[in-house]
């Protein structure tokens, strides 16, 4: 079958379609009836969905990775060998006392 013959065949197979005002009106009526019958008219109010939506709004998507990174960093820091702790540190008050002159200078 050549291309024009194919086109003729397809076009000859198209039945007349009723697009009367009555049919269109019926369609409109059915759509509105369906809207009134079911809650598809608007997005439903679902408390659980609203809760998660609010939670997502309050915590941006990068907040959780940042918190996890902070916890991981803290744990890593705590697990490192802490050499400074072995050195006895002189309290600051002791140093001040020790360095202070027992008597006023010049006497």
């Amino acid at each position: 079958m050549t291309a024009p013959l194919l086109d003729d065949f397809v076009r000859s197979s198209l039945p007349p379609i009723d697009l009367s005002a009555a049919r269109l009106s019926q369609l409109t009526t059915s759509v509105f009836a369906e809207i009134d019958r079911t809650p598809v008219g608007r997005p439903e109010f679902r408390p659980t969905a609203m809760f998660w939506q609010c939670l997502r709004g309050a915590f941006p998507r990068y907040a959780i990775p940042m918190v996890l990174a902070a916890i991981f960093g803290g744990l890593l820091g705590a697990s490192l060998p802490q050499a400074d702790k072995t050195v006895s540190q002189t309290p600051l008050s002791t140093l001040l006392t020790a360095s202070a002159p027992s008597q006023p200078l010049g006497f």
Binding site: Q26, L27, S30, E34, G41, R42
Partner: peptide, 20 residues
């Protein structure tokens, strides 16, 4: 006709729902 009406009706319901 019957299936076509249903298809178009569902499409317009989708329009109503998705319009926002």
């Amino acid at each position: 006709t019957h299936d076509a009406d249903e298809v178009v009706q569902e499409a317009f319901l989708k329009v109503w729902t998705k319009a926002p």
